[in-house]
Design a protein around this nucleic acid. Structure first.
Length: 426
RNA sequence: GGUGGGGUUCCCGAGUGGCCAAAGGGAACAGACUGUAAAUCUGUCGGCAUUCGCCUUCGGAGGUUCAAAUCCUCCCCCCACCA
C-alpha cells in the first residue's frame, strides 16, 4: 500500500493541495518532505506526536523526512490557531528549549526508525538575512490582500477585542521562505503540518511557484495537513487534569503518560490506534473485535497505551509502568504487596521523605506531595471521603497509626481514584 | 496624537459605595454509579483556622469614606476607529 493510502486510512489527511500529485510524489521512494516544530515549550507534547509520527512513517516508507526546528520562527510567534497575540520569549530560553526538543526528536526517531533524523534549523538560513533582503526577495511576492484572507490572520482582524502585530502577521512569510529554502537546498516539495498550518503551508507553495518562476522553472510544491485532534467528550486532546501531556519524562512521568492513553474514551480509542501507532488494518480490526466482546477489559486502550509508551519511553520504561499500574490498580490488597515493589511502582508518583520525628498530619502530607493545592482543600477532600491511606479510606481527623507504615517506613496515599503519593520516613 | 471601549477570582463573564471572597456559565477536584470509560446526580471550588473568625484579591500606586471591585487623582496595559 502506498504511504499516501495508508495515511488516508488512518484518518491522517485533512487537506491536500493536490491529491493525485501528492500520491504520485510519494510513489517514488526518496521523496523529501518536512514538518516544523517551534520551541514554544521545554518539551514536545502529545499533540506533536501526529506530525512527528507521520515523518517517521514517511521514513519507514522509504522517504526522506526533514525535521525542522523553528529557531527563527519560534522567535516570531505563529498566529495560527491562536486567538490572541503572544508574548515573545527570551532568545536564550528559546535556545535551551530548542536543544531539548532536538534531543527529544533524535531519540524518538532513532528508537522508531533506527536512523538518525535529518534535523534542520531555520535560524541557520534566516539569521543573516537583512531586512531589505526579506522585503525585496520574499515580501514582494505576497500581497497583503491575499495574506489577509488567511484564516490565521482573518480570525484576528475580524474580532474587535484582539489584534495582530506586524510581527505575527509576518510569520507566514518566514515559514514560506523556509519551504522555499528547503526546496532549493534539499529538493523538498512537500510540507506537512497540523490543520491550522494550512494557510502557512499553502503560502509556502505559492511562494515557491512564484519565486522559481523568476528563474523560468515554475516548481510545484504540495501541502498536506492533519485533522485537528478532538476527543469525543469535547475535551482538548492531550490535556489531563494536571495539564498538557508532554513527551519528556521529566515533565510528564512515563506512568502518567501511560495512564493518559489508558484512559482514552471508548469512542476515540480505535481512531487513536490508527493515529498514534504503527498497527495495520488487521491488527486494528482485531482490537475492535476484542473490544466489542469484552469492553470492560479495555483491550484497545491497553494496547494503545502500551504502543505509545514504548514508542516514546522505550520497552524498559514500559515494563516498569506496567508493573506499577498492576500494583496500584490490581485487585490485591496494598498491604500484601512487597514494599520494595510498591516503592518501585510509585517511583514516578510524587514522593516525600520525612525524618522520623517530623511526620506531619495527613492533610499536610497531601499538600507536601502536591496532591492538593492547600490544606483546606485537603481537609475537604478527606471529609468527602476522597483520600485513602494504604488502600483504606481516611476518616476525618484520623491520626497516623504505627501500623499504617507498610514495611515499617512506607505510606501510600491516594486522592480520588488514581492520584498516588508516596511517603517515606527514616 | 485624537476619539471611543476595555483590564474582575483558572477561563468566559455579572457586579457602579455597605447585603462581595464577589452572580451565572465553563473548566477542574471529590463522592455515588461503573469498566482506571462515557453519561447522570451530589458536594467543593482564594488562603489559614476543627468552631467563632482572621488574612489576601477585582491592571498599578495613592486618596476620599465608618466602609471601595464600585467614587477621585496619577500611571501602566489592551482593543477599535480616525489622524
Amino acid at each position: 500500500m502506498n504511504i499516501y493510502e495508508d495515511l488516508k486510512w488512518r484518518g491522517l489527511i485533512n487537506q491536500v493541495s493536490d491529491e493525485d500529485k501528492v500520491r504520485e510524489y510519494l510513489n517514488t521512494p526518496g521523496a523529501v518532505m518536512y514538518c516544523g516544530f517551534d520551541p514554544t515549550a521545554e518539551s514536545l507534547h502529545v499533540g506533536n506526536l501526529v506530525p512527528l509520527l507521520c515523518l517517521v512513517r514517511m521514513k519507514r516508507a522509504g522517504h526522506h523526512p526533514l525535521y525542522l526546528m523553528g529557531g527563527a520562527t519560534g522567535r516570531i510567534g505563529d498566529p495560527s490557531g491562536k486567538d490572541k497575540e503572544r508574548d515573545l520569549s527570551d532568545p536564550e530560553v528559546m535556545e535551551t528549549r530548542l536543544e531539548k526538543i532536538k534531543a527529544q526528536v533524535r531519540r524518538f526517531v532513532e528508537r522508531n526508525t533506527g536512523d538518525r533524523p535529518d534535523i534542520v534549523n531555520n535560524y541557520d538560513w534566516t539569521k543573516d538575512m537583512t531586512a531589505i533582503e526579506l522585503l525585496r526577495d520574499v515580501g514582494k511576492h505576497f500581497t497583503v490582500n491575499w495574506m489577509l484572507q488567511k484564516e490565521s490572520v482573518k480570525g484576528r482582524i475580524d474580532r474587535d477585542d484582539v489584534g495582530i502585530s506586524y510581527t505575527e502577521f509576518s510569520y507566514m512569510i518566514l515559514q514560506s521562505y523556509d519551504f522555499y529554502h528547503l526546496y532549493r537546498t534539499r529538493k523538498c516539495r512537500l510540507q506537512i503540518g497540523g490543520g491550522d498550518q494550512w494557510g502557512n503551508i499553502t503560502a509556502g507553495c505559492e511562494f515557491i511557484r512564484r519565486r522559481t518562476a523568476i528563474d523560468g522553472e515554475q516548481a510545484e510544491a504540495f501541502a498536506l495537513t492533519f485533522p485537528l485532534l478532538t476527543t469525543a467528550s469535547g475535551k482538548k486532546f492531550g490535556k489531563s487534569e494536571k495539564g498538557a501531556i508532554y513527551l519528556n519524562a521529566e515533565v510528564t512521568s512515563p506512568y502518567a503518560f501511560y495512564q493518559y492513553f489508558y484512559n482514552t474514551d471508548d469512542r476515540d480509542v480505535i481512531r487513536f490506534l490508527k493515529l498514534f501507532t504503527f498497527l495495520g488494518s488487521d491488527d486494528v480490526a482485531a482490537m475492535e473485535k476484542e473490544m466489542e466482546e469484552a469492553p470492560h477489559l479495555r483491550p484497545a486502550q491497553k494496547r494503545l497505551a502500551e504502543e505509545v509508551t514504548r514508542m516514546i519511553h522505550g520497552q524498559h520504561e514500559l515494563d516498569r509502568v506496567l508493573a506499577a499500574s498492576e500494583a496500584l490498580f490490581g485487585t490485591g490488597d496494598l498491604r500484601k504487596v512487597d514494599p520494595a515493589t510498591l516503592r518501585a511502582a510509585l517511583e514516578s508518583a510524587p514522593h516525600r521523605h520525612y525524618a522520623p520525628g517530623d511526620v506531619p498530619d495527613i492533610a499536610q502530607m497531601l499538600v507536601d506531595l502536591g496532591l492538593v493545592p492547600s490544606k483546606g482543600q485537603a481537609r475537604k477532600d478527606i471529609k468527602a471521603g476522597g483520600v485513602y491511606l494504604g488502600g483504606e479510606r481516611v476518616a476525618e481527623n484520623q491520626e497516623l497509626a504505627e501500623t499504617d507504615f507498610l514495611g515499617g517506613d512506607l505510606l501510600v496515599l491516594r486522592k480520588g481514584k488514581k492520584n498516588y503519593g508516596l511517603v517515606t520516613r527514616g
